[in-house]
Amino acid sequence: MPTWIGQAVRHGIVTSRYPAEPASEAEVPPTGRPPVAVKGSKLLPAGASLCPVGAISDRAVDRGRCIRCARCLPGGFEFRGPVESATRTRTGLVTGEPSPAAPEPTPPLAALSRSVHVFLVDAGSCNACNLEVLALANPFYDSQRLGVFFTNSPRHADVLLVVGVPTEEMVEPLRRAYDALPAPKAVVAVGVCAISGGAFAGTPGLHDALDQLVPVDVYVPGCPPAPVHVLDGLLRVVGRGRKAEGA
């Protein structure tokens, strides 16, 4: 007779080794990595003409805009960017920018490095980001092993995790949620919609950038970011993130 215990034993342990070990290929599908020009920056102009969201300019690739639509692949690009892609600054998301990289600021909530409580706000998403954030609770990622807990009220939270492109209707509720968070607090923008408007940038009635409404401490690019990326962003809030590849 099958039992839940039997099923659990049979299933075994599937929990990710991340962040002790790098994210596996199963955890990050091809589109989980940002595109890079395989043959150097001379391909950038070609990519810029293919990109529907303006993530590729003549000089750099803006991971904060890329929706991973793969239109640039024929132009010599490949999804081979770094996995640990969350940054503390918006400019940190722009790769290939010739200007010297600004030093990474100190983590906003370093004092809470053992346990951090997170409240999720959907400011206007397609539901994919929400589900990826909720996936952190499943046995594969099990965010609680890292002291990341989700709360039911912003009053109990340290971190506001915002997904989606902020709509005009959500500005007030979003601000109320931010105000309800006790200080010290941090905001994590998850997904390119929250960072730059993503696929919806420039639409009337939408606010393209979350950081124009509330101060953002960590940016997690992706459309949507995989759960390990969200985890990376949250750990970066408390200063426990993995060192970025190639940095």
């Binding site: 199963a26 599908p29 589109t31 991973r68 692949l73 024929p74 999804f79 949507p224």
Partner: peptide, 22 residues
């Protein structure tokens, strides 16, 4: 993960469009 491995995207974005991921 199955969707990610077959269509390159966990949520199938772009997977059914012209010039989507491989």
């Amino acid at each position: 993960r199955v969707q990610g491995s077959v269509f390159g995207h966990r949520w199938l974005f772009g997977a059914l469009l012209p010039a989507g991921p491989r």
